[in-house]
Amino acid sequence: MRGWRIFYLLGLMVMCGLFFGALQDIHPFGEPVEPAMDDYFLERAQEERAVNNVVTSIVFDYRGFDTLGEAAVLFTAVTSVVALFRKGGHER
């Protein structure tokens, strides 16, 4: 048990070291590297989809398939919670 804790601590320290190493190479805060796709959405969302909120246009239109999966995940989670707490479902 104790050996595992030391192993975990070592792994956590290695992970933090990798994080701070990656911090030296990451782009500066406030200047994204490849904003071409997002600039396209920002310019075209109003004329293509007639919507003011660009985030909503991406969530429900340009990448609507993602949102379908998200809604399915929410539905599945709710169904699981209901199945877990159904009356008498888990009494031995």
Partner: peptide, 16 residues
Amino acid sequence: SSGTIALMNLAVGLEV
């Protein structure tokens, strides 16, 4: 405005 986006907002609102 915005076509199906408003409709989907309502639908997802109901679901959530």
